[in-house]
Amino acid sequence: MTISQLRSRRVELPDPDTAALDIDLLLVHVLQKPRYFLHAYPEFELSAEQATVMEQLLARRIAGEPVAYLTGEAEFWSLTLATDPSTLVPRPDTELLVEWLLEEYGDTPEKRVLDLGTGTGAIALALASECPRWQVSAVDQSAQAVALARRNATALGLERVCVSRSDWFDQVVGEFDIVVSNPPYIEADDAHLQRPGVCFEPASALVSGADGLDAIRQITRRAPDFLAPGGVLLFEHGYRQAESVAAILRAAGFSRIETRSDLGGNPRATMGVNSH
């Protein structure tokens, strides 16, 4: 079986928008070759063992399993992160949080940052990689996620990022200039939870009550106790939740509230300044 023949199998995959990329990422993983190799040598023939592994991976992808779980890694910002089913797959839209914080504070030599619900460590590690003098901490309630984030920190030479276990702020000590979070924000009955890929991810990292805002309410209520005066709280949220998140921040005494949109033009992140 050749690379060209396998790449033609994209019509079988569940998401037409990513099918070609999905096939390429699986081929790169199986062949242990750079992606340009697939284009340069389309008639390259896989060994029998490689073809068997590729068929197994394709079957799992056709069933909806995320490519990042099949290959064990995902790209985020400029980083390659190990992934597993204990955490969400890092998504490009979440890079908006990193971009926004770097735009606002990247020239500030020192900041104390806390990433709540870190998962793979994506946000914390991206910020630490760009701002070596920032003190970056990350927490997650899942022991498996903490282990994975620590493994990513070590692999990237970012062991200075402090990763620990905490249910939001429960085990957190100290004061921070920035608290950032991509918390669960999907409504419990949202049909998107049954979509291919999403249905394989941990529900605890996706669902947050009837309206999807329970975690954001909980974090916002406690954040002023951990934020320095003038510190900021930044959330990723659903594209229909911007007004609700802004109202939650406003009710908790945050000011200068601003929302920004993701790559698709959807309101995706909201920031507020601690005025206490």
Rank of each mutant, 00 (worst) to 15 (best):
V232N: 12
Q241D: 14
F226P: 01
Q218A: 15
A210K: 14
E201S: 05
T220Q: 06
F235G: 10
S204M: 12
D214M: 02
A228N: 15
I216C: 02
Q218Y: 00
Q241S: 12
E201H: 03
D211E: 08
R217V: 00
A228W: 01
P202L: 09
A210H: 14
L233H: 03
H237I: 09
V232P: 13
G212M: 09
V232F: 07
Q241H: 10
D211H: 02
A242P: 02
L213D: 09
H237Y: 06
S208H: 07
E201D: 05
G230N: 07
A203Y: 00
E243W: 00
G238E: 07
A205N: 06
Q241R: 10
D211I: 03
S204P: 00
D225W: 01
F235I: 05
I219P: 04
S208Y: 04
L233D: 05
P224G: 10
G230I: 09
A242I: 06
D225N: 11
P224H: 10
D211K: 01
Q241E: 13
G231D: 11
P202T: 11
G212N: 08
S208E: 11
P224Y: 09
Q218N: 08
A215Y: 00
A203I: 06
Q218C: 13
R217L: 00
R217M: 00
P224A: 12
E243A: 14
F235A: 12
S208A: 15
V232K: 14
I216S: 04
L234K: 09
R217Q: 09
A203P: 01
L233A: 04
D214N: 13
A203S: 14
G231V: 10
F235T: 08
L234T: 10
S204I: 13
F226N: 02
R217N: 04
F226C: 02
I219R: 02
A215P: 02
G231H: 06
L234C: 13
G212K: 07
I216E: 03
E236V: 10
L234M: 12
I219E: 06
E236D: 11
R217K: 06
G230H: 04
E236P: 12
A242D: 11
R240H: 13
G230Q: 06
S204Q: 14
G209W: 08
R217C: 08
V232H: 13
F235W: 08
V207P: 11
H237Q: 12
F226H: 14
L233T: 03
R222L: 15
Y239N: 01
R240D: 15
P202Q: 08
D211C: 02
Q241F: 08
I219N: 05
D225Y: 02
R222K: 15
I216A: 03
D214F: 00
L233E: 07
I219Q: 08
L234N: 12
V207Y: 07
F235R: 11
L233G: 05
T220W: 04
G231C: 10
F226Q: 02
E243T: 03
L213S: 08
Q241P: 12
E236F: 05
A203T: 11
A223P: 06
V232M: 13
H237S: 10
A228S: 15
E201N: 04
L234Q: 12
A205M: 06
E243Y: 00
D214I: 03
